[in-house]
Amino acid sequence: MAASDVTLPAVGFVRLADVLKIVPVGKTAWYQGVKEGRFPAPVKLSKRASGYRVEDIRALIDTLSAGKGA
């Protein structure tokens, strides 16, 4: 599935699998980026589930699109 096939909701949360369809990095690189503060941290949604705020992912996309790096 291409990144253009993935659409973010207006508000809410998305799971990591959906984020990785948009931001072309692997899980290990993503988690390292979260640890270093380059990528947004997840939010616990339940005991076993985490998600990412859509607003944070959109901000990351804007930063990457502007060529500022993460």
Rank of each mutant, 00 (worst) to 15 (best):
G51V: 10
L45K: 03
F39A: 01
A3R: 08
D62P: 02
T7K: 15
S46K: 05
Y52T: 09
Y52V: 09
G12W: 11
D18M: 08
L64G: 04
D56F: 03
K68D: 06
Y52A: 06
L60T: 07
Q32Y: 09
L16M: 11
K44V: 08
V19P: 04
G33H: 03
V25N: 02
S65C: 12
R15V: 12
T63F: 02
R53E: 13
D56E: 10
K44R: 15
G51M: 05
R38E: 02
V14F: 04
A59D: 11
T28N: 07
G33C: 02
R38H: 04
A66F: 05
E55T: 15
V14T: 05
A17I: 08
G37S: 05
L20T: 04
V43R: 14
R38A: 01
E55H: 13
Y31G: 00
A17Q: 14
D62R: 14
W30M: 00
A66I: 01
L45T: 01
G12H: 09
G51P: 03
S46L: 05
K35C: 05
M1F: 08
V54N: 02
A17T: 12
S4M: 11
G33L: 05
K35L: 11
L45S: 02
F13L: 11
P9F: 12
A59M: 09
P9H: 12
Y31M: 00
S50K: 15
K35G: 04
T63H: 10
V14Q: 02
R58L: 14
F39E: 00
A3S: 12
S46F: 06
D5S: 15
K35Y: 13
V6I: 13
R38N: 06
K44D: 08
V6A: 11
A41M: 07
V6Q: 06
A49M: 12
K21M: 10
